[in-house]
């Protein structure tokens, strides 16, 4: 019963996000649109807290959840209320960074669940035997793919947003070196290749181990290389986020923030895949696509192309 109420709440949440975005793009209705989306979000959050359950198991750690919500809420309101009008874009960038970090953290915890937590509760001998025979019971590759996508996009967005925030308030100066775009592409490429390697080989590296004594238990045993490579992907992605934003000039920051904003949207949508959660999926993808178009529109309004903004400032090789 409660899970079907929750589905309806998620449906309502998704609709409010669409209506909210639509109203935000007209001057007369913009403020109301923002409030409608906020209402839908509140509903979705409260619904998740009180109605969510997975295989009949409800959420626990309510104390931690509410403490986190209250701390985050108070800091959020204080920061947003106090910030000067001129400093708002950097505030948006900072909040965008926290969203990206949140997505990356979710991926890290889910990776831990996937590779080291002994599976308990639904112990099943058939699963165990098929696992022993070499056929993993679940599609590990697909799940890991989503986890890694969320990790990479989330951490690039987090690192990039923090740099953009620092640049807008003058704490971080422009910084670039020769052939930086090549280094950047190498870092990104290495991160993606490592991720692809992990996804392709995960079934060989992660094995189910069945112990019957003293009590039957199905454990997940992971080769250490998997964890090392996973954190290497995280490190490379953060490095890429920093290198990506560093050389871009302060005047182009709003465009970059808008781009990183749509990245975080996609990272949030990865969470939607992970938990089969429609409101995260629609909210994330809507922001991802609307954010990308908005980025292009912002470039047009400044009479520049996105290409120009992103690579125009590298090495000074570009004329005009």
């Amino acid at each position: 019963m409660s899970i079907s109420v929750l589905s309806v709440i998620y449906l309502l949440g998704s609709v409010t996000f669409i209506i909210g975005l639509k109203m935000l793009s007209h001057p007369a209705t913009a403020r109301k649109g923002n409030l409608i989306a906020a209402g839908g979000m509140t509903l979705a959050i409260l619904g998740t807290i009180f109605l969510y359950h997975n295989n009949g198991e409800r959420l626990h750690n309510y104390g931690w959840i509410f403490a986190g919500l209250i701390i985050g809420g108070i800091i959020g309101v204080m920061a947003a209320k106090k910030v000067k009008m001129t400093a708002m874009p950097e505030m948006v960038s900072l909040f965008n960074g926290t969203g990206g970090a949140c997505a990356a953290l979710i991926s890290i915890v889910e990776f831990g669940h996937m590779t080291s937590i002994p599976s308990k509760g639904n112990f099943n001998l058939t699963d165990a035997i098929s696992a022993m025979a070499g056929a993993a019971p679940g599609p590990a590759g697909g799940k890991l793919l989503i986890i890694l996508l969320g990790l990479i996009i989330g951490s690039v967005s987090f690192a990039g947003s923090i740099i953009a925030w620092g640049k807008l308030n003058g704490r971080i100066k422009d910084f670039s070196f020769r052939n930086q775009h090549i280094v950047n592409l190498l870092v990104l490429g290495l991160s993606l290749l490592t991720a692809i390697y992990l996804v392709a080989t995960i079934d060989n590296h992660v094995q189910m181990k069945l112990t019957l004594l003293p009590d039957p238990k199905l454990q997940i045993v992971t080769a250490p290389i998997v964890k090392i490579l996973f954190y290497l992907v995280l490190l490379l992605s953060i490095t890429y986020g920093v290198l990506f934003v560093m050389p871009i000039g302060g005047a182009d920051m709003p465009v970059v923030i808008s781009l990183l904003n749509s990245f975080t949207g996609v990272a949030a949508a990865c969470g939607g895949f992970l938990y089969n959660n429609q409101v995260m999926l629609t909210g994330g993808i809507l922001v991802g696509s609307a954010g990308t178009i908005l980025t292009i529109l912002m470039c047009k309004a400044m009479n520049r192309s996105l290409r120009n903004v992103l690579i125009g400032s590298f090495g000074g090789a570009k004329a005009g």
Binding site: L24, N34, I49, L59, N261, G271, G272, A290, L294
Partner: peptide, 29 residues
């Protein structure tokens, strides 16, 4: 969207992708 609304729309979209909080609540819970 008219260009005066670019920044508010970006900010609004930024708040909407905060829906990732639901994943965080599930992870925590």
């Amino acid at each position: 969207v008219p260009s005066v609304l670019h920044t508010p729309l970006m900010s609004g979209a930024n708040a909407i992708h905060g829906v990732v909080i639901i994943g965080a609540i599930i992870v925590m819970g």
